[in-house]
């Protein structure tokens, strides 16, 4: 095989991996949107907050240390202990559930009958609030997240692909990051689990009922509150997973929250209400971006990745607004 073809394959594979990372974030959106019709702009910030909390717990950071030091003139930063990853993950999960409960009680309950755009703006407010809160609690410096996931390029794969190149070419082999592979596996497992949950369990059915019609669901005895706390908790869990993957890959920093913006084109492609759609949409966007950068990028000076996904989303919005797998939107008078 020629090096050009191998570069193409490598780009596609890396694109698929990048796409999986997007899908992880998109999944959280789909869940909340399915159950409550809200597009949770704060999903990215939730991932950031989850990651920050995880690192903070692992390294034994004192929460709000910056603030405490400013008020009392002290210099404390760490408790002095460290927590194994396993426990830190569990505690972070508990915190995300608590957050879901509080958010439902303080905010969601009061916004039940508002139009989607108001709910969307409320989540923008939440995103800002959570970002400031997270910074206040754990500090805004970049953190390194390590939960023991293997990372770095796979030397084995590099060797194997080098042998595929045609004779005499100086091809160095494909670079595939082990972390990305783990992330891909995790995402697939998550999607299967969530799809199973949604289709076959009682709670999953209740969730779909709520997504269809709040009032009807209530009238058959489904508690809206419970469902919403459940959904936001699961989203919190998904956010945690996304936060771990992205954080391990590029450090825990503010730009993590901007992933929310990238998830939007993924959702538009896949459909806002489809769990498998989040994966497919993510893959298409991931591969599309990388290929566009490779082939079209040089023609216009590069960095197409900044806007390529949105333009694709725009095309979809104009011609197939429900995405590939979403439900068709019908308007009645």
């Amino acid at each position: 095989m020629s090096p050009e073809f191998l570069y193409f394959v490598e780009t596609v594979l890396n694109g698929l991996m990048a796409g999986v990372m997007y899908s992880l974030v998109a999944l959280g959106f789909v869940l909340i949107f399915k159950a409550s019709g809200i597009f949770n702009f704060a999903q990215g910030v939730m991932a950031l907050f989850a990651a920050l909390t995880l690192v903070g717990l692992q390294t034994g950071q004192v929460p709000f240390s910056h603030l405490i030091n400013a008020i009392f003139g002290t210099e404390i930063h760490h408790f002095g202990w460290t927590l194994p990853a396993f426990f830190a993950v569990l505690i972070t999960l508990a915190i995300m559930v608590l957050f879901a409960y509080l958010f439902e009680a303080i905010v969601l309950k009061h916004l039940v009958n508002q139009e989607p755009i108001i709910l969307f703006m409320a989540t923008i407010g939440l995103a800002y609030f959570l970002e400031g809160f997270g910074d206040l609690m754990w500090g805004s410096d970049v953190k390194i997240l390590d939960v023991g996931i293997p990372s770095g390029g796979s030397f084995w794969w590099e060797e194997v692909t080098r042998t595929w190149a045609s004779e005499g070419s100086d091809y160095f082999g494909m670079y595939i990051d082990k972390l990305d592979v783990v992330a891909a596996l995790v995402a697939v497992v998550l999607v299967i689990a969530l799809t199973f949950f949604s289709k076959y369990t009682k709670m999953g059915r209740a969730l779909r009922a709520v997504a269809d019609d709040h009032q009807a669901a209530q009238s058959v005895g489904i508690s809206l509150r419970t469902i919403w706390v459940l959904v936001w908790s699961i989203s919190g869990f998904v956010a945690l997973v996304a936060g771990i993957m992205w954080g391990a890959k590029s450090g825990v920093q503010f730009s993590l929250s901007l992933i929310a913006l990238k998830a939007l084109p993924v959702l538009i492609l896949g459909g806002f209400t489809s769990i498998p759609g989040a994966i497919v949409g993510g893959l298409i966007i991931g591969v599309g971006e990388k290929l566009a950068e490779l082939y079209v990028g040089p023609l216009v000076g590069g960095a197409i990745e900044n806007w390529f996904a949105y333009v694709v989303a725009l095309m979809f919005l104009l011609f197939r607004p429900q995405g590939l797998f979403g439900e068709k939107i019908i308007e009645r008078v």
Binding site: H66, L67, A70, V107, L111, Q114, I118, M121, A122, I124, G125, L126, A127, Y128, F129, L130, E131, G132, F133, D135, L136, S140
Partner: peptide, 18 residues
């Protein structure tokens, strides 16, 4: 610190007003 509070409070006020 002030800017963290600022972001937090603005976000909170958005939700409050909505």
């Amino acid at each position: 610190l002030a800017s963290h509070f600022q972001i937090m409070i603005i976000g909170g006020m958005i939700i409050f007003f909505l």
